[in-house]
Every structure is written in C-alpha cells, then in structure tokens.
Design a protein around this nucleic acid. Structure first.
Length: 189
DNA sequence: GTCAAGATTAGT
DNA sequence: CTAATCTTGACG
C-alpha cells in the first residue's frame, strides 16, 4: 500500500505541485474496486494573475472550490459534455489548481473500458474529459477532500525516469502572457 | 429572462 | 474544421 499524498503536498504553489504530480497515482474506488492510473500530463492554473484561469475574474458559485483549502477537488463541466478534474493547491484563498489531463491506466482497466465503450478504448485516458469518464468522476466530486483516502485520492509513487516536458497549456483563452506560459507538464513517452 | 462562450471530443 | 450539448455568469 502506497502512501496517501498528505495535505502538505498540495499546500504549495501550483507551479511546484503540477510537475510533482507526474508519476503519482490517481486512485478512484467504485463498488469496492480500485481504478488507478499514473498521472502523465497536468496543467497549472493560478488565481487572480492568470487570465486563463477560471478564478481570474473572482469567486463564483462554480469555481468556489478553487478558493477553498488545498487538497480538495475542483470538478467542472465543460461544453455541457465533459467533466474535468483539478486538484486545488496553494494556501486557501489563492485559487490555484492543477488540471489532471491524462493518466496511464494501471488498475481496473476493464472497468474503465466498459465506461468508455469499445470503439474508443484506444484513447482511453488521454484528455481531461475522457479521464473523468473512465474513472466516473463528475460534479458530485467537486469539493471532495482528496486527503481522506475515500472514493478519490492520490498516492505517492516514484519520480519518473523520463524527462519532464513543458509547453503552453491546451485549449485556453486569455491574454498573450497566459498563452505563452509553459504551464503544461507531461512525462516524455 | 436572455444569451454567448467554454481548461473538450469525435467525426467529416 | 465543425457539431454536440448545457451550465454558468453577465446584463438588465
């Protein structure tokens, strides 16, 4: 049994936590079954100073979780279709978060596949929306405490061998500065 | 009440 | 390249 990532891990700047999350295990328990995956791609979002962040224009009911304590989930629905999972980081009130964009399935692959359907199993968990579908994560998990080891949490794992790539974030809008920031991190494959 | 836009994805 | 699909937040 690997170690649950403690609150302290998340109580740091998103730009530190994001690359540190690469290689860690995302664990989802559903019907007593473990669905797990190794995190291979993430993006950091800051608060008031990041024009691409949902928190840029201040707190609203939807992004409230981002303004809450670290180590909790921020889950939102995008385009009326897909859910996206974030981990809140930094001191409470800073509204920083790390978007989990992709995992490499480790346990419960069959159950993940079942959720996604045969036709799309090739692209099982690459992309924030597909990842949430495979792990059955939705807005009921918004605000969920990830440090309890219940339903959804993260576990420590060895730091990856492969180099870490960084690049501008995917699919964002915002000012030039936001678009230029290389706050997407991925494990080279 | 109305309305435009969105941290995506799959299909043409 | 574009449709799908619906919640949210801004405006009034």
């Amino acid at each position: 049994m690997t170690a649950l990532l403690p609150r302290d891990f998340f109580t740091r700047d998103a730009l530190v936590v994001a690359p540190a999350l690469l290689g860690k295990l995302l664990v989802r328990e559903v019907d007593g079954m473990r669905l797990t995956g190794r995190i291979v791609e993430v993006e950091a979002y800051l608060g008031a100073e990041d024009a691409a962040s949902h928190a840029y224009r201040g707190r609203t009911p939807r992004n409230a979780s981002m303004f809450g304590p670290p180590g909790h989930a921020y889950v939102y629905l995008i385009y009326g279709i897909h859910h996206c999972l974030n981990v809140v980081t930094g001191p409470a009130g800073q509204a920083q978060a790390v978007l989990i964009r992709a995992i490499q399935p480790i346990e419960g692959l069959a159950a993940m596949r079942m959720m996604r359907g045969r036709a799309t199993m090739r692209h099982l968990t690459d992309g924030p929306g597909k990842l949430c579908q495979a792990l059955r994560i939705d807005r009921s998990h918004d605000g969920h405490d990830l440090c309890l080891g219940q339903a959804l949490w993260l576990e420590d794992a060895p730091t990856p061998n492969a180099p870490i790539l960084s690049s501008p974030r995917i699919g964002i809008r915002g000012d030039e500065l936001a678009l230029a920031r290389a706050w997407r991190y991925a494990i080279a494959s």
